[in-house]
Amino acid sequence: MSDIVIDTHNISRVYNPTTIPIYAIRNVHLHIKRGEFTALVGPSGSGKTTLLNLIGGLDKPDEGQIFINGTDITTLSPGKLIDFRLHNIGFVFQSFNLIPVLTARENAEFIMLLQGKSKAERGTRMKQLFNQIDLEDKMDSRPGELSGGQQQRVAVARALASKPQFVLADEPTANLDSKSASNLLDIMDKLNREENITFLFSTHDQRVIDRARRVITLVDGQVATDTNVIDTSAPH
């Protein structure tokens, strides 16, 4: 298996191509290896969310190719793309987006239901995930009964339930207080270190940037800087 999980080849996304073209993303060439903990940063309108949407297969580039674990997702049909996302990509959104009528556990295992996993399989995975996000006692609570931080942890569990190739997190701490954000980052950091799960964040949050081990800065839809941070806490 290739070490590179995300590989974009000179992708561009242009709005209003026939009138006044606006490049949301311009010639972005990016490799993200398995196990990376990467933050995508930049000012508002720099193209962070657009790039995340392109990598997540939610949007298609006007130019270039995107390979996820060796599969060119720009050539997939919309139906196949949905299926690809289901099995390969985990999403964490800014505003949690849990289904309010389902319990925390039901929300997290929803992806596995879509994948057709057995009850036993789902049970084992949920137990493991809720243990990892430290919410075993809240499995049967509905989203309305959980704090923002707890809801976002459930959203992380949902993203990881399908054992994806990587997790895309769009401003995951934007709606959280400091303590909840720190707690969430601890969990994601732990999952990254212990289970080698690849995370790609788009963020403005300095707390996330401080934890990232690679920081890619976008300016006007182009990669301005791409820095590997020396990780002093990593086990040797």
């Binding site: 997540g56 939610l58 139906g79 949905i82 299926d83 996302r85 289901l86 099995h87 990509i89 999403f91 959104f93 987006n97 289904i99 929803f110 992806i111 879509l114 949902r158 993203a159 399908s162």
Partner: peptide
């Protein structure tokens, strides 16, 4: 609207 978009994003087939 947001929730339905999110469900398609995370991999729920439109037929379902």
């Amino acid at each position: 609207k947001y929730e339905l978009g999110m469900l398609v994003a995370i991999g729920m087939k439109k037929s379902r």
